[in-house]
Amino acid sequence: MKTALIASEKRPQFDKNITNNLLLEAASEEAVRKETLVIGIRNESGKIYRIIGAPALKNYMNAVEELLDLGLVDELQDAEKSVDGYDSIFSL
């Protein structure tokens, strides 16, 4: 899966847990947004600071499971379609 940091946003302390638990390849924000499914992750200020792009549903589901295991909550879990280009948005 590909990931990009949003340059203007602060990385939270828990970010190292994400990068340790998921196999992520650094890419440009544009490349990540071209993936089939896109996950946004919010920092403590409520701003999306990292995006993760999954090429297939299996990869997406694996990432969602790992993020839930880290204690993050998917704000869009009950949404029937993507919101602002995100299929999931996770926060603490």
Rank of each mutant, 00 (worst) to 15 (best):
Q13Y: 11
L67D: 01
M1L: 10
L72H: 03
D69T: 06
E35T: 03
M1Y: 04
M1R: 00
Y49I: 03
V64M: 09
E80G: 14
I48P: 04
R11A: 14
N21I: 03
K81E: 15
M1T: 09
Q77T: 12
D87W: 13
M1C: 05
L76I: 06
K81Q: 12
T19Y: 11
S8L: 12
N20R: 10
L24N: 02
R11V: 09
E75P: 00
F90G: 07
S91E: 13
E25L: 10
V64T: 09
R42W: 07
L76G: 02
L57K: 04
R11Q: 14
Q13S: 10
N21P: 00
E66R: 06
R50G: 02
D69Y: 09
F90T: 06
G40T: 05
V64Q: 10
R11P: 07
E25S: 11
L92C: 02
K16F: 14
S8P: 02
E44D: 15
I18V: 15
Q13E: 15
R50H: 08
I6S: 00
M61A: 12
I18Y: 03
A56L: 10
S28L: 08
D74Y: 08
E30F: 13
E30S: 13
L68T: 14
I41G: 02
R42I: 06
Y86Q: 01
I41M: 10
R42V: 09
E80C: 00
K58Q: 11
E44K: 06
I51R: 00
E65L: 12
D87Y: 12
N59V: 09
I39P: 01
M1P: 04
